[in-house]
């Protein structure tokens, strides 16, 4: 199938925006209500048989979820990424399980991690996080660091043997106030703060001697 005929099929959808990123990647942006029609068209008429993945992206500032369907054609050797956006407050979408069976896994994953309910999907139930009943954790407004600070207490770990080691000038005595979650917190610390912390407390001092 040539590129023209593929474009012709894609253009059957009104309000479609096609971007050719490179030779084997096509990005299309469609409205939510025409997404299943698009997938039906490219599967039926252009042999896009392989649903590679469904991704959900939380655009919290726009109050929207973006759903991305990556579909590959074994005959054309081309990947279409179909992007669509749904309302974040009313997070519901229709399943594509009857078109692509792998959608079962991805939709269940998105339901669990983002709370998007897929109407008609066969297994809208817990899968990985069976013991979790809070907010879907991959949403941007779930702050995992705050959750850790609230739920778990830092405890001072300073057993006798470690104390003895420290007295001899070795060991890894770390005070709770020195513990920082890597990443966000650490990056916020200014250079001066870090240097100060280093001077006050040398980790592993005299380790080799």
């Amino acid at each position: 199938m040539s590129l023209e005929s593929l474009n012709e099929i894609l253009n059957k959808i009104n309000t479609i925006k096609i971007t050719h990123k490179h030779k084997r990647r096509i990005r299309v942006d469609v409205k939510a209500d025409s997404l299943t029609t698009l997938l039906e068209l490219i599967k039926g008429q252009a042999s896009f048989l392989h649903l590679s993945a469904i991704t959900c992206v939380d655009w919290i500032e726009d109050n929207q979820f973006e759903l991305v369907y990556h579909v590959w054609s074994y005959e054309e050797n081309c990947l279409i990424s179909a992007h669509t956006r749904i309302d974040r407050d009313d997070a519901k979408f229709v399943t594509v399980y009857d078109l692509y069976k792998p959608a079962d896994f991805f939709e269940r994953d998105i339901y669990e991690m983002y709370g998007v309910f897929f109407i008609g999907s066969p297994r809208m139930e817990k899968f990985i996080l069976t013991e979790w009943f809070g907010m879907p954790p991959m949403r941007k407004d779930f702050d995992s660091e705050a959750y850790v600070q609230e739920t778990f207490n830092w405890t001072e770990y300073n057993p006798d043997w470690l104390q003895e080691l420290s007295d001899q000038g070795g060991g890894i005595a770390i005070k709770p106030e020195d513990i920082r979650l890597s990443g966000t917190l650490h990056n916020k610390a200014t250079h001066r703060e870090r240097e100060k912390a280093k001077k006050e407390h040398v980790v592993g001092k005299g380790w080799k001697s």
Binding site: F127, I128, P137, M138, S144, S182, G183
Partner: peptide
């Protein structure tokens, strides 16, 4: 029955620098 090894990597990656 999966989930015994869930470490939330996708979430962790959103809070770390590109190189981290």
């Amino acid at each position: 029955d999966a989930g015994y090894l869930h470490r939330g990597f996708e979430k962790l990656m959103e809070g770390r620098l590109w190189i981290q």
